[in-house]
Every structure is written in C-alpha cells, then in structure tokens.
C-alpha cells in the first residue's frame, strides 16, 4: 500500500445505507475492485437515520474522516431520507466551518446499488484526501 504523510493511515467511518451504498460496496467486492482498507463500513437502514452525533462522535473518537453514503437524491427507498440527510450534512459542515474545524473531513456520497466502481472510487478519494490532510486534530487531542 502506498504510504504518504509519514506512514499516516487515516481512519474513516462510513455510514452506508442498506439499499444503495452498502449494496454498491458488495458489488465492488464481487467485481474485485481494490480500494484501501481505511474505511470502516457501518450499515444503517437509510442515510436519513444518520444522527450528526454519530459523525461528531466518530471525529472525536479517532476518525480522521466520516462519510455518509445514500441513494441518489430522488431515489430513496424511504422516499425522502436522503433529502433529510442532505440537510443534516449541510448543517454539520456549516457548523464545522463556522468553528474553523475541518468541514472537509465530512463526506457525503450518493452511490446507487449498481455503482460498485463508484463506491471503490469514493473510498479511494476520501482516503487519499484525508491522507493529504493528515491526522484529524480533533481526534488527537486527549483533552477534547
């Protein structure tokens, strides 16, 4: 594995919706798409159930980036979950920006079940970008 940034291996948590993105992750597997192991998938029923506290907790507990993966807008199995997720992601990023924290460690990707390669590409991209950003200062400070 390519190592940069003094061997820094980012830790990333991905909350993947059961219907689209988690399914795409499986498809990436059946087609043997290779991507770095840095993202830990957590399957949830819908991107709309991802409470910001999960993301903040992740970023404060050692994650260098977080990702929410859902169905494309308009395609939600539960009609509108991803629209609600989109608002929450926008809000959380906005709060991070206001506080001068790294909003760009918070990722959203809409990946449908047939987009296995896109899932692999997203993990590669997020891993690479996070590698460039270096360790998440929020997760390295014991006093936070």
């Amino acid at each position: 594995m390519a190592e940069g940034n003094n061997g820094f291996e980012p830790k990333i948590i991905g909350f993947l919706c059961n219907w689209c993105t988690a399914s795409a992750a499986d498809l990436a597997g059946t087609t043997r798409a290779q991507y770095p192991p840095n993202l830990h998938p957590v399957r949830v029923m819908c991107s709309g159930t991802v409470d910001p506290v999960y993301l903040i907790k992740s970023l404060l507990s050692g994650a260098d980036a977080v990702m929410v993966g859902g169905c494309h807008p308009g395609d939600c199995h539960y009609v509108s979950g991803n629209y609600k997720a989109r608002r929450r992601m926008a809000m959380l990023q906005n709060i991070f920006e206001s506080l001068g924290l790294d909003a760009n460690r918070i990722w959203t990707r809409w990946i449908s079940a047939s987009e296995g390669p896109e899932f692999a590409a997203a993990v590669r991209e997020i891993t690479e970008e996070t590698r460039k950003q270096g360790p998440n200062p929020l997760s390295t400070d014991w006093a936070l």
Partner: peptide, 13 residues
C-alpha cells in the same frame, strides 16, 4: 461481510 467488503477488495494488504 468480510469477503465482498473486505477480503476481495483489500487483497494486497
């Protein structure tokens, strides 16, 4: 799932 989401996608590490 440690096959499709793990073994098959992280073969080289």
């Amino acid at each position: 799932n440690i096959r499709e989401q793990l073994a098959w996608v992280h073969k080289d590490d």
